[in-house]
Write a protein that binds this DNA or RNA. Structure first.
Lengths: 210, 210
DNA sequence: GTTTAAATTAAACGTTTGTTTAACTTTGCT
DNA sequence: AGCAAAGTTAAACAAACGTTTAATTTAAAC
């Protein structure tokens, strides 16, 4: 069901990048076809329509996200705070590794009229919450975490901070002292800074320690 | 320069809402004309083009944001933490009162190719940072705030958490126990919850107290 | 080697897009 | 009242859109 050939994957990858950069309606199938170096008709031939191409992008990345979540369920030996730290780091890595898709999600979740894609996004966030909440509540019951924590809001802060960091990158790269770094260095710098900030934040609010 | 008649304001308001709901490219000038109950040609007549209509929306709200920022500079008698609290509350109120515009900003800041609008957005964020940073550093010098705080990241968390809350509303309203509230009640509930969460977060990270 | 299906193409399809035109109406001023 | 400017309209414009067609090439199976 999810095995695409090279040409199909090329179309999906290019579409993902352009949708992220210019938005779904801001990207034409001709743009995609040209950058992917395929005939326009191939997009309809393989995916049926532009809408279904977006759906294909989502199906591909969503499956990866599902696998990502299921992988996080493990690691029961860790202390609660270590679990949270692990969750933060893995989440940051995931975000930085699929920025284009995260961009599309940021855009699509703003659409007011409900769509299958919008539903999928919030379903995924719900699963992330379902992963984080028991860690927190269990630690609360054990007297390790503070009890006055709004887990949904904490999740919103995690998502929001990371999503907000994505567009901020372009500004940092051009306007500041980080211009001398290459892409890999900058990405690593950003990863570390985000990680430190979020861990500090979560530790403070969850454990009341520093 | 910024005095629009009723019809122009109607067009701007409708355009702002539709751009927020469906995106700039997802909204046609015919949609706008129809919902604003004006002839299509009036949009070009008044604003020149669809692009310049978006610019008009931005100019209008940006000016309000500038005024908002300048207003925040006052209140020098407050304690540092109270200043931060005030900033958080005013910021939340602003966000909730102009959700459509904030939606457009969320979308536009994702566009990779630079534009006058994208520049304006980050300029505005820079001004917000310039407002928050001295409060924090002064309090740090006075020994009131902790010194290991990443102010840019804290700003990102503030923006990100609130921006992330906007799309989350539609989900909450339809899927949860808050369906019985009317719009005003729900808005107030959300305002309070956001406020509590962010104040707790900022107090913990800035003062190491609870 | 022939046959059948899949892949690929250039061209054309009918809409919808943003914008402009030209005619007409209203408004405000002397 | 008469006139000029501003406002308003339906219609038309070319360009771009997503999609389809029909013809051709490539690949696979027998």
């Amino acid at each position: 069901m999810e095995d695409y050939n090279d040409k199909q994957l090329s179309i999906i990858t290019v579409a993902e990048r352009l949708f992220a950069e210019k938005g779904f309606h801001g990207t034409s199938v001709r743009d995609i076809a040209q950058e992917a170096d395929v005939n326009i008709a191939m997009i309809s031939y393989y995916f049926g329509s532009k809408d279904k191409l977006l759906e294909a992008v989502f199906r591909l990345r969503m499956n990866a996200s599902r696998a990502f979540i299921n992988e996080l369920v493990q690691n029961d030996t860790m202390a609660p705070l270590e679990k949270i730290y692990s969750l933060i780091d893995r989440f940051i890595n995931k975000m930085l590794n699929e920025q284009n898709f995260q961009c599309i999600m940021s855009r699509e979740q703003l659409n007011k009229e409900q769509s299958p894609i919008r539903d999928l996004i919030w379903q995924l966030k719900g699963e992330m919450l379902g992963l984080m909440r028991p860690i927190v509540t269990n630690a609360q019951d054990a007297g390790i975490f503070a009890t006055d924590v709004d887990v949904e809001m904490l999740m919103t802060t995690l998502f929001g901070t990371i999503h907000q960091t994505i567009p901020a990158q372009h500004l940092l790269r051009t306007n500041t002292a980080y211009a001398h770094m290459n892409d890999q260095e900058f990405k690593e710098y950003l990863r570390l800074r985000l990680s430190n900030h979020l861990k500090k934040l979560f530790k403070a609010i969850l454990t009341h320690e520093f």
